[in-house]
Amino acid sequence: MFEARLVSSGTLKKVLDAIKDLLNEASFDCSDTGIQLQAMDSSHVSLVSLSLRADGFDKYRCDRNLTMGMNLASMTKILKCANNDDTVTVKAQDDADCVTFVFESKKQEKISDYEMKLMNLDQEHLGIPETDFSCVIHMPSGEFSRICRDLSQFGESVIISCTKEGVRFSSSGDIGSANIKLAQTNNIDKEEETVSIDLQEPVTLTFACQYLNSFTKATPLSNRVSLSMSANVPLVVEYEIPDLGHIRYYLAPKIEE
């Protein structure tokens, strides 16, 4: 028996919004420690790694490890049937071929359940080594989203260049070029607005805008984001999901031909 309950359906909707741009379907691996998902987009350029801890749920039970392959468009249809403040419970029997979503309104006067068929997905898991990154940038997630959106008007790629002075995002194309520089801030009063840089050595890498913009669909999950970079390794963009877990995106850098 698997059962996981969240007081707010809105949280699960945000998690789904954060992955469905990149993935059409995904396997949710459930164990007694929580729910994990690791999947690459169809072009194998980016990877989503989601972790939801058991203790972040209001109720969590997983008697046997279970992998639930879900079509994310179908899951989206079902979650549209929930109000954001409805409680959601995800349930499945051991070895089940379907999963049930139960939505309960605040006052319990409306209870609905939706059953969805599960899929057998061939998943390719990648072994991701622990890396000591040359630089880690912590910044407001809304600012990162804005920068990706603004720069993608100019070109298909963004160059991210991090030094001890700050971080520079730049893009260029047919209409011209754009540069955005962020300096490290020391505003302790408004910690969530700070930009901080842990730098071992300066790094400059180039990334496709399209994927960065998809990653920023996680912005509603967290007001902070971190960007971890080293020369010639994939970028890691991480959003902490408060009290529940995290979502990490990996993106292969572009290289000079």
């Binding site: 990877l47 990648l126 790629s157």
Partner: peptide, 14 residues
Amino acid sequence: PTNQPTLMNFFKKK
């Protein structure tokens, strides 16, 4: 001109 490699250029399959 830049080239877009896949993640398999960096990570091994499990």
